[in-house]
Structures are given as structure tokens and as C-alpha cells.
Design a binder for these strands. Structure first.
Lengths: 194, 194
DNA sequence: AATCGTGAGTAAGTATCACTCACCCGACTA
DNA sequence: TAGTCGGGTGAGTGATACTTACTCACGATT
């Protein structure tokens, strides 16, 4: 997937990733990216359609790596509920550990329509589809209530994960991912009403 | 709150709101806003610090109106659980009915640090605080499990609402808000595990 | 060993915006 | 009738995303 990338291209991707740790995407100029990468501005446009395309490719690499790591983790779990809980935990931890990844995905790309045509988004959709299938499996084998809309459950899980990570990502706070994900799992799987 | 606004300022706010129904914020130029409003570009900068400030003010008006409507609705409910369910339903419906409001709040402002200094964000924080207090009330009077972290529950609710609305907002789909919010309420309050 | 093609990179633009600034106008008021 | 002030104008300007014409190093081909 990422083999035989020209050195300049790699340097540009690395530079943007580094800069995103300190600044938000709009505040990062192409001139700054080029300077940080040690190349000229023109080279960015040799390898990327435009500035946003560069962002999407960086996100795409992160998602691909994350997708592989997540799949490996879920394969170790036996039941659907265990897999879904692992999904919540692993994803939240990924957003919090790799802040740039979380920031791009949750804050920087969604307001640009082109993102939804990108490879990054396609990978993300595939990931969500596989989680959706786990939910369906769980319903089929009696682990999960059948009268729940599987799509809404998926959205609730993803939404909970994202919103739990959001403050930490925006304000660069440290939060206890372990404790938070345990709580989310408890809320979604057991419910909060007495 | 919004009294005695000069006509030009109102026209500019209305123009942006209208344009946001068709285009995303970055794609809307100040020249286009001015043209749509029937004023000159310079006037925008008489009333707003910059283009983003204009966006924040438009959002602020929407949030203030929504906040009032929501408070009125919640006051009619007696129990904490009923209030929280009404919060989920009312908020989701607001995002779906007023797409521009949903789009600005969920997609356009969060990637700009200045938003978190704006009046709009302050109002939003106040709104979330009042919902948090309802959760705490519910715990105090035995409606809601006391071993749940109230903050995480709040985030889960908000996250579920936002993510359930997101696809509809992004792709301009119609979705059955009634059915979706009933499902979210079921998931969060009763849990999904058999 | 001369030539060709190509991938990698450069440097000097250009067009488009967001934003500024000096100014105008009419209506009050002293 | 001069002063001032809110509301509004329109011609700039600088930053910046993006383009384009070019160079250089190189391995393969003849």
C-alpha cells in the first residue's frame, strides 16, 4: 500500500503530521509545510491534488493502520459483545493516543465534501460496516436485543466514542480512557435506568 | 438580545444562513455573502470581526433560540428520565429540521479554536450544564443508576444525538427522527444486552 | 557511448480571497 | 449651521493556494 513512495512525498506527509500536533489545518500554510519538509511548495502539488488531498492521504494512512490493528484485536475476542466492547475501548484509545489522527478525523475533514469521495472515507465506511456485522451477529445468536435497530446502535456507539474523546482532543486534556470506555460499555450494554 | 440590529447586519446574517443551505462555509466567499445580502463587502467587517465571527454570531442566534425552546419543553416534563428523553428527541429534531443549525454546530465551527471563545459556545456549554444537572437529579432521586459517571452519560447522549443526525446533515438525507430517537432512548436507558 | 525517457524536484509566477481604509451621506442635535 | 454619529461604500492590499515552465540525475536502449 505505502511502498515505493518518493522521499519528497514522505517528507511532506511527515511534515504535515508534525505541524498538526501544534496547529489546526487551516492555520498551516503550504509554504510552512514545504519549509518543514525541506522541499519547495511546488512539489506538494506534484504528489497531491491540493492541500486537502494531502490531508486526506495522511488520514488514509492512519485509518489503514488503525483498521489493521483493530481487526487483529477483535479477532481475539469470541463473543459479539466482547468484540463491540473491544471496538469501543480500542477506538477511544487510538483517538486519545494518536491525537493528530483523532483531530483530523473528528474535526478537520468532515466539513469538506471531497472527503466523502476519498479513500480514507471509504476505509472508514468499510470499518463501520464490519462493526455493523458484528452487531447483527450478536443479534442472531441472542447476545443482543433483537428489537434494537442495529444501525442506530452503531451510531450510538460511534457517537459516544467520538464525543468522549472530543474535549480531550480539542483542549489537549489528558483523560482516563480506561475508565471512560468502561463507563460507555456499561451505559450502552446495561442501560442507565434503575 | 437581538434588538436594534442595523438592517445591513441582519441582511448579512440572513444571506449567510441562506447560502449555507447550499454550500459549505469554506466555499462561501465574502463577496458572495455581500452580493446575496445586497450590501458591499466592507460592511461585513463593520459588524463582524472576521468571516468566522459572522458564522459564530449566526450560530449563536440559533443556539439561543433553540435553548429557549428546549428549556420550555423540558419544564413540562416531571421526571429526570422524561426530561432527558425529551432532550434527545428535541435536539435531534432541531438538527434535522434546521439543517443549517446542525451543520454549523456539528461540522463547521469545531475546527476553529476561536469558536471556543465565542458567545455561541458559552451558551452551548450552559445548555449542557443544565442537562448534566438533570442527570444528577435523576441519580439523587433514584431514577438513574448511581454507579454511572454522569459526565460520561452526558457525552454518550450528546454523541448519540450528533452521530445519528450527521449522515442526514452531510448527505441531505431524510430520516425518521421519531423512530431514531426512540431507539436511542431505548439503548441508553434500557441497554442492549439480553 | 550517445541518446532518450522519466521520475524527482525547483522557482517564479498568478488569481483569488479575506480583510483594510479613507471616505460619503443623511439625520439628529446643540 | 456646524458638529457628530450611525450606517454604508468601493477601491485597494497582502497573503496564500495553486500553476507552469523549466532543470537535473538516472537507467535503459540502440
Amino acid at each position: 500500500m505505502t511502498q515505493h513512495q518518493p522521499p519528497g512525498k514522505i517528507k511532506i506527509l511527515k511534515a504535515l503530521s508534525l505541524l498538526l500536533e501544534q496547529h489546526n489545518f487551516n492555520a498551516i500554510t503550504t509554504a510552512l509545510i514545504a519549509k518543514e519538509a525541506g522541499v519547495t511548495e511546488g512539489l506538494i502539488y506534484k504528489y497531491f491534488k491540493d492541500k486537502k488531498d494531502l490531508l486526506f492521504e495522511l488520514l488514509g494512512e492512519n485509518i489503514t493502520l488503525f483498521n489493521q490493528a483493530l481487526t487483529a484485536k477483535l479477532d481475539k475476542k469470541d463473543t459479539a459483545v466482547e468484540k463491540l466492547k473491544a471496538f469501543i475501548t480500542t477506538t477511544t484509545k487510538a483517538y486519545l493516543k494518536n491525537r493528530v489522527f483523532g483531530r483530523i478525523l473528528l474535526l478537520e475533514v468532515r466539513n469538506t465534501p471531497e472527503y466523502f469521495q476519498s479513500r480514507a472515507h471509504a476505509t472508514m465506511t468499510a470499518l463501520e460496516t464490519s462493526i455493523h456485522e458484528i452487531i447483527l451477529d450478536g443479534m442472531a445468536n441472542g447476545e443482543i436485543r433483537k428489537d434494537i435497530d442495529s444501525k442506530v446502535l452503531l451510531k450510538t456507539m460511534v457517537g459516544a466514542i467520538e464525543h468522549a474523546s472530543l474535549d480531550a482532543i480539542i483542549f489537549n486534556q489528558e483523560i482516563n480512557a480506561q475508565a471512560v470506555t468502561r463507563q460507555i460499555n456499561e451505559i450502552i450494554f446495561k442501560g442507565v435506568e434503575v
